[in-house]
Structure formats: C-alpha cells, structure tokens
C-alpha cells in the first residue's frame, strides 16, 4: 500500500500539538487561509525588543500535514526573528524537494510530502501565517 505519506513521524508531530492554542495578549497575530482546501492557520507571537519570538501559539483548522507543520515550526521558532524564520522555511522547502540541500530537523519528517505536490501548501501554510505575523 502506498500510504507512506502518513509516516509515524508526521503523525507524531501532529499529535504532539507543540504550541497549539492561543496567547494572551500576543504582540502580533496573523491568520492565513488556503482558499483551495479551506485550511486555516492562526499564529500568535510575542516578540522581544529585537523582534525575536519569545512565545508562539497556533490554531490550525486543517489537515494532519498542516497540524504537523505548525507543531514543528512552533518547536523551533522561539528565539528567531523574521530572517531566522525565513531561514528555517528553507528546511521545509528542502524536505518538500522544492529546494536543493538537506533539511534540518525536525523538517526531515516532511520528506514523504515531496511526492504529493497537491499537499505541499498544507505544510507551508503555517510558515505563511508566521511570516505575516512577523511582518
């Protein structure tokens, strides 16, 4: 059976729900929708004086891939500014086969999505929401 998309690591990331929820009084918040599938991600962040993320929380109304990505992103976003988040997006893009090079953890988990182009936006939607929140 070709159901390798939902490997244990992706399912585990989604179930971990790292950063799932809302922040009280976030510095910034942004919501992104995927009009094609209806997935929706809201990112809340708190920033320090240098624009670095000190706290992050996300709400996902979307698929397991989107949940896993938001969870993975939340796990590594604290301490990063907009440039730092843009840097880790490259890891997701590499895992998806959209950029060359090896992705860093935890984004290697998304390598199975490289073969499912129609689902790649699900992985990237949390990055889009966080980028908006940081802009």
């Amino acid at each position: 059976m070709n159901d390798q998309l939902y490997q244990d690591r992706i399912v585990a990331l989604a179930k971990a729900k790292t950063g799932a929820g809302k922040l009280d009084a976030p510095t910034k918040s942004a919501r992104r929708d995927n009009p094609l599938c209806g997935d929706r991600v809201t990112m809340d962040i708190k920033l320090d004086g240098q624009g670095r993320i000190t706290e992050i929380a996300h709400q996902v109304r979307g698929c397991l891939l989107c949940q896993a990505s938001a969870s993975a992103l939340s796990a590594v976003a604290v301490g990063r500014d907009a440039a730092g988040v843009a840097d880790i997006r490259h890891d997701a893009e590499r895992a998806l086969g959209r950029e060359s090079g090896d992705p860093r953890e935890p984004f290697t988990a998304f390598a199975p999505v490289a073969a499912h182009k129609s689902r790649q936006e699900c992985v990237l939607l949390p990055f889009e929401a966080l980028k908006d929140a940081l802009s």
Binding site: M1, N2, D3, L5, Y6, L36, C37, G38, D39, G62, C63, L64, L65, Q67, H116, R119, C122
Partner: peptide, 29 residues
C-alpha cells in the same frame, strides 16, 4: 479526529478517488 483531506489521501492509497474539503459550498460548511 481526522481531517477530510487526510481521509481522502488515505483512500487514495487504497486506490479510491473521492473529494474532500468544502466542495465549493462554504456557506453550507
């Protein structure tokens, strides 16, 4: 506990083609 897209993707691995999502009927959703 399982998003419709994940149901549909799993079904694809069983050779089953279905549609998942809002079906261009967001007010109904």
């Amino acid at each position: 506990g399982v998003h419709p897209h994940d149901v549909a993707q799993t079904l694809d691995s069983f050779g089953v083609a279905v549609r998942a999502g809002h079906h261009c009927a967001q007010p109904l959703m």
